[in-house]
Design a binder for these strands. Sequence first.
RNA 1: GGUCCUGUGGCCGAGUGGCUAGGCAGAGCUCUGCAAAAGCUUCCACAGCGGUUCGAAUCCGCUCGGGACCUCCA
Length: 501
Amino acid sequence: MPLKIYNSLTRQKEVFEPLNAPYVGMYVCGPTVSGESHLGHARPFITFDVVYRFLLYKGLKVRYVRNITDAGHFEEEGKQAEDKIATKAILEKLEPMELVQKYTHLYHWAMEQFNNMPPSIEPTATGHIVEQIEMIKKIIADGYGYEANGSVYFDVVKYNEDYSKKNQPYGILSGRNLEEQLDTTRELENQEEKKNKVDFALWKKAPVEHIMRWQSPWGEGFPGWHIECSAMATKYLGKQFDIHGGGMDLQFPHHECEIAQSTVCNHQMPARYWMHNNMITINGRKMGKSYNNVIKLSELFEGNHPELTQAYSPMTVRFFILQSQYRGTLDFSNEALQASEKALRRLMEAYEWLKAQSFTAGANATDAALDSQLKTWVNELEIFMDDDINTAKVVANLFEIIPSVNSLKDKHITAEAVSGDTWLFVQKQLELFIEQILGIKVEQGANRQQLNGVVDLLVEIRKDAKTRKDFATSDKIRNQLAAMGIQIKDEKDGGMSYSFL
RNA sequence: GGUCCUGUGGCCGAGUGGCUAGGCAGAGCUCUGCAAAAGCUUCCACAGCGGUUCGAAUCCGCUCGGGACCUCCA
């Protein structure tokens, strides 16, 4: 089955055909490391991690580039500081690289918590100033950029005129019409420098107090906020590559500007497939700085936020995100996260048990209907992934399969009901989809081994007590352990098992 | 104001015109010393009004509601 992905550019699902199979180039817009990542940021990184994993599973050789924006628009943090201390004090105390370092580390830590695979290349904007300047020079030389008072702007109107003839007007990705924008775009500062208010900055002259600054043919300044992605994507993936991803809110203006810049320099549309994940909302509203409703990842993991009734583990959050299709909005609530937490536990307990079983190959099944139903469910996993990475349906099917696994575990059905071949197939594919493709890993704390030993001992004592019909002791052990988050389960044959909640 | 998306049961969330999505919560049953877990069964739905169709949650129109982008934004 071929993989189909929804291309924002054409607004439809298309069969994914790599430009140079088996090689695939994928660029995803990374974070601006001027602050801590929040729940909303987690979505694209988890979504595209799954895309990456699935492409790898398909046997493709993927170069996954995800940038780190560590230059340019750090105004907000600077402004906050400005209110408190004098500009001179900022110069003395606030070293930009300190911020960058701190938040880059936090970001990497969060990515690891989520079990996201590291991208092949993680380039930084500050490491590619030269490439950005070269690109801007090229744009000016071609007549689509102009200098004004030490800054350089992209001439959107001229670009639109020329490229409309080539069927690639400005606004092709976001479905915008330039004339309308000329009428509706708000007035901003420094508009007088621009020829048209829709023009965007390629290079900005640095005001005296601006700390991050580089030499350029137009004086000291810093790059505009779209050019870094164009420069780095071109450098590492070529003039045209396969997939460009990012959040839906980047579609305009960021990706639109990227298209314009790259097209002028490289004479072709930079990416063939544009994928955009939708937003995470909270109380029906997008989670974002400007709405003042963000839940930072560290707060989420610690349960330390007024909106949170408890802490949620990274895998719970990952699973929560994968329970929906990436193109729809996803509404945050404690109820929804708690549902995910419980569902994930049920899934993983059954999965871990299944993984530890040994089955013998063989084709005989006493329950042929169940046998073939299981095979169908398992086979559908890949079909659903092929359909625009529909992780929601993949997860739904996992829950179709789980009851059979638990039935086997609790001896509601015999192993012979389903053929050994099928059990082996279920076992293998569940491992593939749960661990390799969805990237869900078993979460367990440190000292687990030692703790297991202690719990084993208590379980033994409880067994003795039960045999003596000393239910007081038996219940005491079970209840006290339950209070500590360790759940004992009595099994049919007198055995006991336990799990950590 | 412009462009676009969306409205599914108590909550989250899939749904390609005809078939039970799935999860969590609720109810019942089985199992159990009692529980828990697990399994089985089950209640609750497609914003409203029209239209197309043999048949619509799914297509079209209108109304109402929600949201995103147009400024930094994942």
